[in-house]
Design a protein around this nucleic acid. Structure first.
Lengths: 375, 375
DNA sequence: GGAGTTTGTTCGTACGCTTTACTAACAAAC
DNA sequence: GTTTGTTAGTAAAGCGTACGAACAAACTCC
């Protein structure tokens, strides 16, 4: 870290905006409305979006031409005036593929429908593959999934561990032995399908936002072999200056030392909270005390973050038998004790409701967001 | 804090976008280019922005009509082709007013030119005024400043302590006795000028971004009577779920107790770091040890935030004789010891270069951003 | 002086959305 | 059975925004 002065100047990459971009936005606005609230007539959409009926009709015609939207017959309930022809997303037109590379020993994937329901699941054991072998396994997985899809595939979403840049290059994923793996590009050229690759915790946060019951700014803490987090501020993932946002696993917690971490420091969050560490400590001593201690440590680490960001929610993802209960309660208590009511009054802390599928479903949501602008 | 499930669903307020909004964006793009890089010809602007010369000419005509842009004569250096007529922001067309309400005993303000240079400064002693009396003092201050301006005033920016919402309502500012003060609206109706009101630390962060040497995501920590922070992610201020982002003053630091805070907790960041606390502690004991301790505590609080956000920079604002030196160095050391190199390697920690004017200048920058889209 | 370059404008075109005006299809009241 | 009023969707015209092609002006270089 430097204590000097950075040279140069932030170059905010603002770029020109054309009317056609505006149209793309309005297009997504319609899709989003249909996606979230289901059937609407053209007139409903016009009222909801503020666009005129004329413009909505025009956009709907375009979307119907692409097979994304279909007419569903006339409105049922009797009202004065001409009966409305209802529209909806053509939910039987496409399927999504979501991939989760974050588990320690398995690559998971699934075919999902547009509502995020899992249709077919595939798991391939990793068996300590790294580098090119791991990449080959990913390709085998997506090939199996593409073959399993019963409808055209809208796109493939991938949640990968490690640092992932905006172009879907895995900049660094030590566990998989990837240094600068252009995963998105490789999958796209192999499949000839749109692919989106992002960090697993960010993807999980997106899942919670799309399919969970979360409002407002959200942090998802993913506890597994390591500890990572994904942040969703104003509905948008935060990537950070070096695509390392959410990397809180090796932040030291507390001022009283702590267990030695693989990174060489004492008292890293990961040394307190990672699943293997928890299991080992629980085997050695009072299980409940171990969980309470881990929960407190998580709370200590999260308190400043909650204060700085004024989060609306924190969601924990990981083995429920470890996290849900003593640990979660200790975290909640600790955050409450270490922040002002102004801050923790607005905060909801809870387990995810999406279970093990969280990354797979988030990856699918990412495809919807990238391809349709739906989030 | 609830550990239950939030009801409802995030309603991302996406709204329709019309071609005229696109034009507004392109307009700002031109202004921004001129503001930051100075003189350009129409053809230069076209090359820089990707718009065509035709479109640029059209937009420039509009901007010249409003007096925002002026022709500066022909390009000096001889090149083949028709000589270019240079354009620039009309820097002598408008002035800005910036107001800082964050000091404990004084309301400060200044008239500035478009480049953020201070032209006239006015300070009014607060003398323990609160509520309506404090509001009256703000009005007296802006009236004095408007009278002191020698050119039309583009707008008034205000940095206020406390929580400020997006409409410039001071939701809560205990020190000034404001509960729900619609400051922006009141000043606007009084002055008949555009007014922007925001939180002081956020405004300071904006100043650092606009006038300081900062790249990328930035956190500004403001140490004074209290301790607060402003975050600028991707050039945009972060407000948080309840407009309380940056409120880190009452986050408990460390696991070993600490001094009693006015809020009733022990070991709040503010109890370690606020200027009155520092001065009292230094009078009682080893001044350098006090500063080192305070710096360490700040580092402990910031480490998780830096990790979670992957910040590019942290800037300290406040009394340099306290912050710059032992304290800053201790903070830097602590962050380095408590985060992974991946995180702190990219981080620059430093004092602001803007001194006491930081909020006033940030408020002026806010006006530029709101009125011209320039940041 | 001629060739080549660059600038900024004019003209016509394509696109996106709006307003206005229309037809179709219904419920409610008479 | 007719009239009235409402709602849905479409058609036509118009305005705003940006683009490409073409051009005149003004310069440098050879």
């Amino acid at each position: 870290m430097s204590t000097g002065y950075a040279s140069g100047r932030a170059l905010r990459l603002t770029t020109k905006v054309l009317p056609e971009h505006a149209r793309g936005h309005n297009r997504s606005l319609l899709l989003q409305t249909l996606y979230r609230a289901g059937m609407h007539s053209r007139a409903d959409l016009a009222r909801e979006t503020g666009l005129t009926r004329v413009t909505v009709s025009d956009l709907v015609a375009e979307l119907m031409g692409e097979g994304l939207v279909v007419e569903m017959g006339q409105r049922e309930d009797a009202r004065p005036g001409k009966p409305a022809t209802m529209l909806d997303l053509n939910r039987e037109a496409f399927q999504l593929i979501g991939i989760d590379l974050s588990a320690a020993d398995t690559f998971r994937g699934a075919v999902l429908d547009l509502d995020g329901r899992t249709l077919t699941r595939v798991e391939l054991p990793l068996q300590d593959r790294t580098g090119a072998d791991a990449l080959a396994l990913v390709i085998r997985l997506v090939d199996r999934l593409v073959a399993a899809a019963t409808l055209p595939v809208l796109g493939v979403g991938v949640g990968s561990p490690g640092l992932v840049d905006l172009a879907g290059v895995v900049v660094s994923a030590p566990n998989l032995g990837w240094g600068h793996e252009p995963l998105q590009l490789e999958l796209e050229t192999h499949l000839n399908l749109p692919v989106v690759v992002a960090n697993d915790a960010n993807v999980a946060a997106l899942a919670e936002h799309s399919f969970g019951e979360s409002e407002g700014d959200l942090m998802l803490v993913k506890v597994g072999h390591g500890v990572g987090a994904g942040l969703l501020l104003d509905g948008t993932p935060l990537f950070g200056s070096r695509f390392a946002a959410g990397e809180i696993g090796h932040v030291v917690v507390g001022t009283d030392g702590g267990p030695l971490c693989v990174c060489g420091k004492h008292g890293c969050l990961e040394a307190w909270l990672a699943v293997p560490r928890l299991e080992a400590a629980m085997a050695d001593g009072d299980a409940d005390a171990v969980l309470a201690q881990a929960g407190r440590r998580l709370g200590i680490a999260l308190a400043p973050i909650v204060g700085a960001l004024d989060l609306a929610g924190i969601v924990l993802s990981g083995p429920a038998h470890l996290l849900d209960g003593t640990l979660l309660a200790a975290t909640a208590d600790t955050i409450r004790d270490r922040t002002s009511p102004q801050i923790h009054g607005a905060l909801a802390l809870r387990m995810t409701t999406l279970g093990e599928d969280i990354v797979v479903r988030g990856a699918a949501a990412m495809v919807l967001s990238a391809r349709l602008g739906v989030s």
